[in-house]
Simulated scan of single mutants.
Amino acid sequence: MEFKRHVLAEDKAKPTAKELQKNLIALIDLSLVLKQAHWNVVGKNFRAVHLQLDEILLTTREGTDEVAERMVMIGFSPDGRSETVAKETPLAKYATGFVGIDDTIQAVADALATTIGELRKSIETLDDLDLISQDMLIATSSQLEKHLWMVQAQEE
């Protein structure tokens, strides 16, 4: 399938889609990390961290959907399959089993920082390609940066 009316010139659409795809993978994996952490966090202040992880997840899922839909808008099929995410994610593996509060906070902060780093690299690249996609990534990054601040404020 190909759309007849393009919102972005082909010479800019393809590299834009490449940047969006990288961020789609990071955001999907971040959402998986957040859910794994949410289910397995244990320790003092469990409830607060447990609920905070779901708040971050909502932001992440909204960003994921925005990125994937933007790819479609510019004529490219997003790839969020588990095999693609597992193969191409920039995020570190999350621990198995129950994870204490301090380790959870550190791992989630690291995953957020990595995802934000990917977003920021693409924000710079998109400056010459597509300002709409750039603006979308700026908005997502801004929200995740606020979550990072609130997560790492809990580190010892």
Rank of each mutant, 00 (worst) to 15 (best):
A113Q: 11
Q106E: 13
S133Q: 10
G97T: 12
G100D: 15
V99M: 14
K87V: 03
D128E: 12
S122I: 04
A95M: 09
L91M: 07
V99P: 03
D102L: 12
D102W: 04
A109Y: 09
V108A: 05
A107M: 03
E118L: 01
K93S: 10
Y94A: 10
I105N: 07
Q134Y: 11
I123W: 08
K121L: 10
L129F: 04
A111W: 02
A109M: 07
L119Q: 06
D127W: 08
A95I: 01
G100L: 07
I105T: 13
Y94T: 13
T125K: 15
Q106D: 09
E118K: 13
A95S: 14
I101F: 14
R120Q: 08
R81P: 01
K87P: 00
V99Y: 04
T115P: 01
P90R: 07
V99L: 13
G117S: 13
E118T: 12
D135P: 11
S133A: 15
F98E: 10
I132R: 11
A95R: 10
Q134L: 15
G80D: 06
F98S: 10
T89I: 04
Q106L: 10
L91G: 02
K93P: 05
T125N: 14
F98P: 00
Q106V: 11
A86D: 09
Y94K: 07
L126T: 05
D130Q: 09
L126D: 03
T104K: 03
L131M: 12
L129Y: 06
I123H: 07
G100E: 13
L129D: 00
L112E: 01
A95F: 04
I123K: 11
G117P: 01
V85A: 10
T89W: 03
K93C: 00
E124I: 14
D102Q: 15
P90Y: 05
A107E: 03
S122P: 05
I105S: 02
